[in-house]
Every structure is written in C-alpha cells, then in structure tokens.
C-alpha cells in the first residue's frame, strides 16, 4: 500500500466516530425533516402520503405561526443590537484604566455563567404583579401596578430586557479579546494629533472592531433563535402566544400536539432562517477569516 493511501485511510478512520455522530444527529435529521415536511402524518389506518406544499400552505395560513414568526424577528432585533452595544461599552470601560476594573468585569460577566432557567426564576419575581420588585418600585413612585408578563403588550419586552442582561457580558468577551489586538501606536498617534476620545473611537477603534462586530452580530442572531428557555419559566409562550418563539412553537407542535409533519415544516422554516444568516456570514466574513 502506498504511504499516501495509508494516510487517507488513517484520516478517515480518525474522522469516523465524529462523522457518525454528526450524520446521525445533524445531517440525517436535517434532511429527514425536509422530507417529512412534504408528507402527511401517517396513522395506523391511514398511511402517510405525499402532501407536496400542503404543509407549507398551512404554515402560511396559520395565524399563530405569523405571530410566532413576528415575535422571533422582534426578539432578535430587540435583544441583539442592544446587547452588542452594551457589550462594546462594557469592553471599552473594562479595557480602559477604570478603577477596580477586575471587579467590574466580573460583574458584567457573571450573568453569562448562570443557567437561563435560574435567571428566569429570579426575574420572575421582579415581574410579578403587585408584590414583584418592579411594582413595588412603581408603588414608591406612585405608579399603578401592572401585570408585566400577563399583558400581551409588555410580556415579550420583559423577556427581552432579561435576555440583554444575560447576554451582554458574553459578547463583551469578544470585544475585550479584539481590543487587546488593536495596535496601540495608532491610537497614540491620533492622541498626539489632538484627537478627542470620541473621535478616536469613531474614526479608529470602531472601524477596527468592525470584523468583531460582524462576527458577534451573526453569532448572536443565530443564538437568539435558540433562546427559548425563559419561556418555560416565565410565560409558556403566552398570553395568547404573545411571547411564543419559533423553536418553542416547534417544541409545542412536536411534543404537546404530536403533529410531526407540521413540526417538521416549522423546523424547515427555522433551518432556512439559520442557513440564510450563516450564508451571510460566509459571504461577508470569509474575506477576513481564512479557515486554514
């Protein structure tokens, strides 16, 4: 056997275990989901039959789906940009000559290592009508109590605020890492030229951090579509689906309503969203990151 051939075989043998798991739990189910979305649910009496685009037509006509889709987009837009902005601010503060910066960095980062379920438990008490912390503070200021999580107008916003609190410190880390690689002489030169802090940020730091911002943005968006844990504690997607998100709706459809075909169709919608964002990443970021 030629040494080349032997090294191929070694490589494929090394890849085998991971390949089996990846195929079994990512590629095969992804393809299976697409196939399933084109068929009806089979029962013992009525076998599954080809449905074509019927399930997709059902998705488009489903008022709950429309609400869920709108919520999912709103949730992404309402959590990702604020969290990233805060993260950048935090990183600039912690990276500068702040007094007690280690402690401040610790404070910003701590929510990241808490489980979402625990965080939701704590925040649930803030939002409880009447006795909750938010209403108690409101009382002190003479504001009427409010059922924050029970009101369709405020429930999603409440979850978004909590999510921003939980995630900002995580994104801060990426900015901190990036800030440490910035050339200090560039900023020093600008300072000697008499540029103010804001000018330095706007003209030098921010543009140099752009690749990081894009990277964090894409990954935060991808992540936001999977962030459904708080719903299990806070709202169960209610009131009247006002906080229902796509992955939670998939969970409900699959495990509470046992509608496999419809769950598969919804999953294809989610996969399409993820793939769209991922493709943007490859298109935009590949010019910078070379995977070698």
């Amino acid at each position: 056997m030629s040494p080349d051939r032997r090294s191929w075989i070694h490589a494929w043998l090394l890849l085998m275990p991971a390949a089996i798991v990846l195929i079994g739990f990512t590629y095969y189910p992804a393809v299976g989901t697409v196939v399933e979305s084109l068929w009806t649910n089979g029962t013992v009496i009525r076998p599954s039959k080809f449905a074509g685009w019927d399930n997709y037509a059902q998705v488009l006509g489903d008022p709950v789906f429309r609400k869920v889709f709108r919520n999912t987009v709103l949730f992404a837009l309402g959590t990702v940009p604020p969290a990233i902005t805060l993260a950048l601010l935090m990183a600039l503060w912690v990276n500068g000559g702040l007094a007690g910066r280690a402690l401040v960095r610790l404070a910003y980062f701590t929510p990241t290592i808490l489980p979402m379920i625990a965080v939701a438990n704590i925040w649930l008490f803030f939002y409880t009508p009447g006795i909750g912390l938010l209403d108690q503070i409101g009382h002190g200021l003479g504001v009427e109590g409010h059922n924050w999580l029970g009101d369709a107008d405020t429930a999603l916003a409440c979850i978004m605020v909590m999510t921003v609190w939980k995630e900002a410190g995580f994104f801060m880390i990426f900015y901190l890492a990036a800030l440490q690689t910035l050339p200090p002489d560039l900023i020093e030169a600008a300072r000697l030229e008499g540029a103010g802090r804001w000018t330095i940020f706007r003209r030098i730091t921010f543009p140099l951090l752009m690749p990081t911002t894009l990277f964090v943005l894409i990954n935060a968006l991808l992540n936001s579509f999977k962030l459904v844990d708080p719903l299990f504690v806070l709202t169960k997607g209610g009131p009247d689906n006002a906080t229902n998100l796509l992955l939670y709706y998939i969970y409900e459809t699959g495990f509470s309503f046992f509608d496999g075909a419809y769950a598969a169709t919804l999953t294809v919608v989610l996969l399409t969203l993820l793939a769209g964002i991922a493709l943007t990443q490859f298109a935009v970021l590949d010019r910078r990151i070379h995977y070698r």
């Binding site: 990846l22 990512t26 189910p29 999977k226 699959g254 993820l274």
Partner: peptide, 17 residues
Amino acid sequence: LQLMIVPEVLIVRNYAT
C-alpha cells in the same frame, strides 16, 4: 455547518432517533 444547526433545532427528529 453544525455551528449553525445545533442538535436542539432538530429536537423532534433527534428524539425519534
């Protein structure tokens, strides 16, 4: 690709597996 498609996204199918 798996960076985008984490196992949770395919819960229904993976549960069946």
